[in-house]
């Protein structure tokens, strides 16, 4: 599924739910009968925060900007905006997929 430098990909289950798996999650095992999806990577920030107190897994990565992003195809996901700050990011800002790794889906602000 999604990997560094690759496209943002996922699948739609038989029940209609869209999943865009984070590398390392068991969701990468695509259920049989699911429809593979490839996304353009363009999306809009619905809301965002800056995380200062993380889980153990992210303890060396703070602060980071976490956002709910609606992709132009309509699906939403949780993403990290690598170049985002409280000063330069706004709700409704356009972002572009950069890569996925064990620390989530990474986006940058569209220029």
């Amino acid at each position: 599924m999604s990997g560094a430098g690759s496209q943002l990909v996922g699948y739609r289950s038989l029940a209609g739910e869209v999943t865009i798996p984070v590398p390392g999650s068991t969701l990468q095992n695509v259920p049989s009968g699911s429809e593979p999806l490839t996304f353009s990577g363009w999306g809009q920030v619905l809301t965002y925060t800056v995380v200062y107190v993380p889980t153990t897994r992210f303890k060396d990565r703070t602060p980071y900007v976490l956002a709910v992003i609606r992709l132009e195809e309509g699906a939403s996901l949780m993403g990290i905006v690598d170049d985002g700050t409280v000063a330069n990011l706004k709700v409704d800002a356009e972002v572009c997929f950069h890569h996925s790794d064990g620390y989530g889906h990474h986006f940058t602000i569209a220029r």
């Binding site: 809301t47 925060t49 995380v51 993380p54 897994r57 956002a67 949780m78």
Partner: peptide, 30 residues
Amino acid sequence: TQILAEAADWESEALAGATFPSLFALMARR
């Protein structure tokens, strides 16, 4: 923080960087 985050969607939210305060911060910003 990690134990509490396990009450979110671990595979789609916590592995993507979410904590519980961050989920409510996302609601607050919106």
